[in-house]
Design a binder for these strands. Structure first.
Length: 431
RNA sequence: GACCCUGUCGUCUAGCCUGGUCCAGGACAAGAGCUUUUCAAGCUCUCGACACGGGUUCAAAUCCCGUCAGGGUCACCA
């Protein structure tokens, strides 16, 4: 039975790199019919926070990763001490006293060559002579990362350790500990790191780092996962859009790339727009409703659901982030449109009283108030006035929406409705 | 500095293992055009890469060596 784990430390939010590590572990476990274990590495009592645990769990759920088992290192301190004690008794570790009289347990590193077969990189060799003796249990009684990690991975019977590149240099230290404790050394696979546009590690300076930030910005989990997946793995048939479900079938760990990848928001935006375009409006509505409520655009209790879904449909092919909807479609929810000053200046500066009032009058008495009927009505009007359609389309759009961009004008009028459309047009008619 | 990892278009990659089908394919971005009612979407086209130097070979992006470059790690943090 294949068993993998994702082991975040609750000293911060779930990082985009952490999400990616979780993704590959989850993918591997699913593709192998194995178990995916979650372990919270909260040995650092001072820096670990409950709110971060909640945030991490929440983000993992949002991404769709279900774990089979959940552990907290803070509940396992005795196990680490017991294992350290064993090494002490076997003479493989020694005690070091601090000036204050506190005792730490240190593992004695003996010189030797250490070979690691990395599933992604092949063989890597290290020289233990270059490794210092390792602290196992700190003088405050808590275990060090490398020790707790080894004890847990062994006791939890983890078969494959899939983690970031930055852990490569921890690997020989851990291999030494597995051997000293008499445990089977697991398989290792080191994922390349994700870099920021500045070439260094992805950091807050180079963009949002928390998975939850991407959720807040309006990225769909499926799109984010698709992007993260593509950052260091490819299905091999030039496809850019692939679901994790499909990836589970095609995934092979040896096909994961070795090179670190730069995080490119533009491509994420494109992938997200593709998912948005094909998404079920009802699913988008579910994400959007709380935000619309928050903006007082609708109330959670009663809103016109078919109407909301229709409006979402109008916009979904134009969005690259779901949250853009809040700005682009605001005129459907506001009493009066919020005017873009430049748009107003460009299209509504001249007096269009005659045209607007004529159009409003005709709309008012239009029997066939459907998109096609509205368009016919409008085309006839401009023909009679002897002006180009676009000369009137743009001002009308700005008058109705406050913007120069948006869905087709006749659809806007249809969904805005007779009353609101006419009222907004008439507000520009000089008495 | 030491050790380790990595080097294909600006970015993500396919190809590399099993040399020839690659004067290197796809996608994003950028630029141009079509469509048009604006913005998107869609469609078409353009720009653009095997880090460098040796070697092996009839033949190298692919194999070997070196150089250079980038990154990571060197805590009683995880």
């Amino acid at each position: 039975m294949i068993r993998v784990r994702f082991a975040p430390s609750p000293t911060g939010n779930l990082h985009i790199g952490g999400g990616r590590t979780a993704l590959f572990n989850w993918l591997f476990s699913q593709s192998q019919g194995g178990k995916f274990i979650l372990r919270i590495e909260d040995t650092d009592q001072a820096r670990s926070k409950k709110e971060f645990i909640d945030e991490i769990l929440e983000s993992l759920k949002w991404l769709g990763f279900n774990w089979d088992e959940l552990y907290y290192q803070s509940e396992r301190f005795q196990r680490y001490r017991n294992q350290a004690q064993r090494l002490l008794e076997q003479g493989l570790a020694y005690i070091e006293k601090s000036p204050e009289g506190k005792e730490a347990i240190i593992y004695k590193v003996l010189p030797k060559k250490i070979q690691v077969q990395d599933l992604i990189r092949g063989e890597i060799e290290f020289d233990a002579a270059l490794i210092k003796d390792q602290v196992l249990i700190k003088s405050d009684g808590t275990p060090t990362y490398n020790f707790a990690c080894v004890v847990d991975d062994a006791e939890m019977e983890i078969t494959h350790i899939i983690r970031g590149d930055d852990h490569i240099s921890n690997t020989p230290k851990q291999v030494l500990l597995y051997e000293a404790l008499g445990f089977t050394v697991p398989n290792f696979a080191h994922l390349p790191l994700i870099m920021g546009v500045d070439g260094g590690r992805l950091s807050k300076r180079t963009g949002a780092t928390a998975i939850s930030d991407y959720r807040k910005m309006g990225y769909l989990p499926a799109a984010l996962l698709n992007y993260l997946l593509l950052l260091s793995w490819a299905p091999g048939d030039n496809r850019e859009l692939i679901s994790v479900q499909e990836a589970v079938r095609l995934f092979e760990i040896r096909n994961v790339n070795k090179t670190s990848a730069t995080f490119d928001l533009k491509k994420l935006d494109w992938i997200n727009s593709q998912y948005l375009k094909d998404a079920d409006p009802a699913a988008l509505a579910q994400e959007l409703i709380p935000l619309l409520v928050q903006k007082n655009y609708i109330t959670a209790e009663h809103y016109d659901r078919p109407y909301l879904l229709a409006i979402i449909k109008l916009f979904q092919a134009r969005l690259s982030r779901l949250n853009d909807f809040l700005d682009w479609a605001d005129f459907f929810f506001l009493e009066q449109p919020a005017f873009d000053p430049a748009a107003k200046e460009k299209y509504l500066a001249s007096d269009l009283s005659k045209e607007f009032s004529m159009f409003a009058t005709r709309l008012q008495s239009l029997d066939n108030f459907e998109v096609v009927g509205i368009e016919e009505c409008f085309r006839q009007l401009v023909a009679e006035l002897g002006i180009e359609a676009k000369k009137l389309i743009h001002p009308v759009r700005v008058a109705l929406t406050g913007k120069t961009i948006g869905p087709g004008l006749f659809e806007v009028i249809y969904y805005l409705g007779k009353e609101r459309s006419c009222q907004r047009l008439l507000s520009w008619v000089k008495k």
